[in-house]
Amino acid sequence: MRLFDYEYSAECYKVRLLLSILEIDHEIVPVDVHPGRENESAEFLALNVLGEVPVLVSDELILRGANAILVWLSRRFDPEAKWLPNEPMPAAVCQGWLTIADRLAAGVGTARMTLSRGETLPDKRATSEAHRLLRAVDEHLWFAERRGDDWLVPLPHPTLAEIACFPDIALCEEAGVSRIDYPAIRRWMDRVRRIERFTLMSGIFPASPPAPRTPVNQTQTESLS
């Protein structure tokens, strides 16, 4: 299985994440999007007429775009259907998050790519839109935490919702969108980064190691006065 991949692409990172978590053997084919514009070459356009990474080429089929690849990988390599649930409710909720992820990609994701090429943003629409979305995600996660839920879809384990939403949220500060006002998102990011076999990309740091099960003697914070 070969992944046509660009290091800085959040879309490609979604696929790299799931490949790593599900321990799927694969080969990376680097596509020099910037500055090489290899994605506009005739060979690549033959693979994907949209001229976009990621593209996954397996013996069975060729898939274009992160969502298609994520769905196929989950159905094909996750027999317990954890990452793409089967039950009607979680399946539908998960799809809803894939839509949010697409909105994030189109807005803040595109803004980030523009800025990271050293170009200036045409306007602030994308970043304002990002703040609106992040507010909604933060609110959702805050209430989820109250219910004892750690993840976007109310299940005891993460799903494709995490895989699809994490990259653009974790990279949004590169687009000038600060996460200081989204504490529930920041905590969720720690949880996502502690998923087993989670993998990093440039621009994302590892989370603090989880706390040991037996806590140290508890003391109380006191006034310094």
Binding site: R179, I180, R186, R187, P212, P215, V216, Q218, T219, T221
Partner: peptide, 27 residues
Amino acid sequence: HDLPLRHVFQAKLFDREMAIWRADDGN
């Protein structure tokens, strides 16, 4: 509730940015 163990919270007060974290001993 913003401060679970092994997390660093980002805050700001009067233009001063703060890193807030709870140690394993609760402090």
